[in-house]
Design a protein around this nucleic acid. Structure first.
Lengths: 214, 214
DNA sequence: TAGATTGTTAATCGATTAACAATC
DNA sequence: TAGATTGTTAATCGATTAACAATC
């Protein structure tokens, strides 16, 4: 939903590619490379070089003719554009098997997203510790998120409860939801949702994979 | 990659929406509803009704004027189109914290994807049992996947090993890869890749969420 | 300088939407 | 029948690509 954008009027689809560019740059940097070009980047990502240059040009000239892009400079700029040049706190709702795995996953903290509070509706889970965080009851969700000014949350509850949880989160001030429940959420247009459903990923491939056997 | 399609010449973007339609239909069916319309479906998904009708029309007339769509009939048809009207076996490579969580996640089996073999390079992990499956060494990957005719795999190894693992999988006959490693894979054009990177999901939202605080 | 690559414009391509006849 | 909704065509809209002057 929403096409609320800060800088000028950048298409959503451009924004959605920037994290991919950033990830590729991070890798190049980790490999010790200092300069890259739209051509190299495009080849790695399966995207045309023209598209990369066009996308980046929305935010100003980051490159040099004849040379290309300084990787560390471009990383910096993309991080600023995406607002990931700082640490974000994230709330996690639903501490079942999936929620626990999410809480334990190191990939979030490593990349600037700090899971800082956990919620579950089951009384037997409340009070447990997961990764040194206390599981709180849903009744504390609103106050905790509001007082700490948390703007991002992840939902890892069963599909039938996801919409209700989303509504609570939105009311508490959350503006971006990463939804692991296999269901579409309906939220106000100033709230953003991203979906993580691995089964959808698999189903997007089986169409192309003929059942040669059977 | 690839725009190899079986039926006629359906755009990839249409195929990518079908699993979302199917998921919404599953939910309506679970709620006991029997008939729906492009309008209702569109409202739930935040998609125009015209787009839904257009997408579905690529595969023939599934609805009735004046009435709409029979949910169970449409589910059936979409499952056939997507080739998910049968069980798929999936290989999982990388049995760290993330891999274990994936292996234990019930959502795959429930929706027709059966994780049927596990691989890891670490000698201390080989021979362990996870969800009743024996962890096999990478050296057995090729033979196991080939003899069992497995066409789908998930990668949950560290980013620096993902490309090499992908190459092995492709050589063994895998045609679709769900990649949890935060890196772009390069594969032949007849092999499909879908990416699961929750951090990318978060980074796609922070752009729109102003840092009101600080 | 010669070679390379950017940023940008204009052309192309493809996807979405609006509209409506057909018909349940 | 009157009302509703499909499937489809044509119009619109937007995104991608090709091309090239500018310039490092």
């Amino acid at each position: 939903m929403a096409s609320n954008n800060g800088n000028g009027n950048i298409p959503d689809i451009v924004i959605s590619r920037l994290p991919i560019y950033l990830r590729a740059l991070n890798r190049l940097a980790a490999d010790g490379q200092e300069i890259t070009s739209s051509h190299e980047l495009g080849q790695r990502l399966g995207i045309s070089s023209a598209q990369i240059r066009k996308d980046l040009s929305h935010f100003g000239g980051f490159g040099k003719q004849g040379t290309g892009y300084h990787i560390s400079f471009l990383q910096d700029r993309l991080r600023k554009v995406l607002h990931v040049d700082r640490e974000w706190e994230v709330a996690l709702v639903g501490i079942g098997d999936l929620g626990k795995a999410i809480a334990r996953y190191r990939g979030f903290g490593d990349r600037g997203f700090h899971i800082s509070c956990l919620f579950d509706s089951a009384p037997e889970k409340v009070g447990q510790r997961v990764e040194n965080l206390l599981v709180q009851p849903l009744s504390e969700l609103h106050t905790t998120i509001e007082t700490r000014g948390i703007r991002l949350a992840m939902i890892a509850v069963p599909a039938e409860h996801a919409q209700a949880v989303a509504a609570h989160l939105v009311e508490a001030g959350v503006r971006g939801i990463l939804n692991y429940a296999p269901i579409n959420l309906s939220v106000p247009s100033n709230v953003h949702v991203q979906y993580i459903d691995p089964v959808v990923g698999l189903q997007r491939m089986t169409y192309y994979v003929e059942d040669e056997l059977i």
